[in-house]
């Protein structure tokens, strides 16, 4: 019995990080219709900057968080302004965006290797472990879950109640009509990339603290976020969050029953399952066009 409970706890830990990634991707997809796979690199920049400032330079972790957010948001916004918006001006097709996002993902991964080198980065943090009978959870993991949940609740509230949230949903429904109503949709896309990248940096920091950092993680993180998005129904923030926890759960089940090697592969099994059998996702709010 305790094994099942432990799997659930681990799933919630992983899922809450993936939820930050997936909701950022959804923000970006909803307003720009781009599957921003290079988001994986934006996450990594956040994580590596945090590690560099705090561990390597020995400066304050608060400064690390601040610079990490700054770095990720800058990288995300630059990708949008220099590549995607320029493509939009030229009436690029969806395939063209997909090719450039893959190129950005590869370019970003190489930049991270060049700047921070390939060695595995660890934070080596000592944290209290709480034991309940045979269940284990660390203080760090509790903090991680709390931060993620608070951010996700804040995000849902922004989308639901604020003027920006409404403008974002209108842009997601139909960007041409949104601009007829006086919404500067380019500004909305910019804000979406900003918010998505901010979430990415937090996800990066939490991933670094809980796991280790290696430069090739970016592609897996992006694909897990993408899978969570497809599971929940592309375009729905709540769906993406739900999908993220499902990805986390399947991952932990696979690790426990089939071994650690299955951790990443199971995500793709899930992805194919949904793409083939239920492409509109569980909530099916938006057609997967």
């Amino acid at each position: 019995m305790w094994i099942i409970a432990q799997i659930f706890i681990n799933a919630i830990i992983a899922g809450s990080v993936y939820a930050l990634v997936a909701s950022g991707l959804t923000f970006i997809y909803a307003t720009s219709r781009i599957f921003h796979l290079a988001h994986g690199v934006v996450i990594l920049f956040g994580a590596y900057i945090f590690h560099f400032v705090w561990i390597e330079q020995g400066l304050s972790p608060i400064l690390g968080v601040f610079l990490s957010i700054l770095g990720s948001v800058a990288v995300g916004l630059l990708m949008n302004e220099l590549i995607y918006e320029e493509q939009r001006k030229r009436h690029a097709k969806r395939l063209a965006y997909l090719i450039s996002t893959i190129a950005l993902l590869m370019l970003g991964t190489s930049s991270i290797i060049l700047i921070f080198n390939t060695s595995l980065k660890t934070f080596g943090i000592q944290t209290t472990v709480y034991r309940f009978d045979q269940l284990n959870i660390t203080l760090m993991q509790i903090i991680l879950i709390v931060i993620s949940c608070l951010l996700l609740i804040l995000l849902s509230a922004i989308v639901k109640y604020t003027k920006f949230g409404k403008a974002m949903r209108a842009t997601a429904d139909n960007d041409e009509v949104a601009s007829i109503m006086g919404i500067n949709t380019r500004q909305i896309r910019r804000l979406s990339f900003g918010i998505g990248s901010l979430l990415a940096s937090i996800a990066g920091i939490l991933i670094g603290l809980e796991f280790n950092l290696d430069p090739n993680m970016g592609v897996y993180l992006a694909l897990k976020g993408f899978t969570a998005m497809v599971i929940g129904g592309v375009g729905s923030i709540n769906g993406a969050i739900f999908g993220a926890f499902l990805v986390g759960l399947f991952e932990q089940i696979a690790v426990w029953y089939f071994g650690a090697g299955w951790k990443n592969s199971i995500t793709f099994v899930l992805l194919f399952f949904f793409l083939l059998l239920r492409p509109q996702g569980i909530f099916g709010l938006k057609r997967f066009r």
């Binding site: 949903r169 429904d173 139909n174 041409e176 949104a178």
Partner: peptide, 9 residues
């Protein structure tokens, strides 16, 4: 044209 309201709102 086509009653383009925002359907999910």
């Amino acid at each position: 044209q086509g009653r383009l309201i925002f359907p999910t709102m």
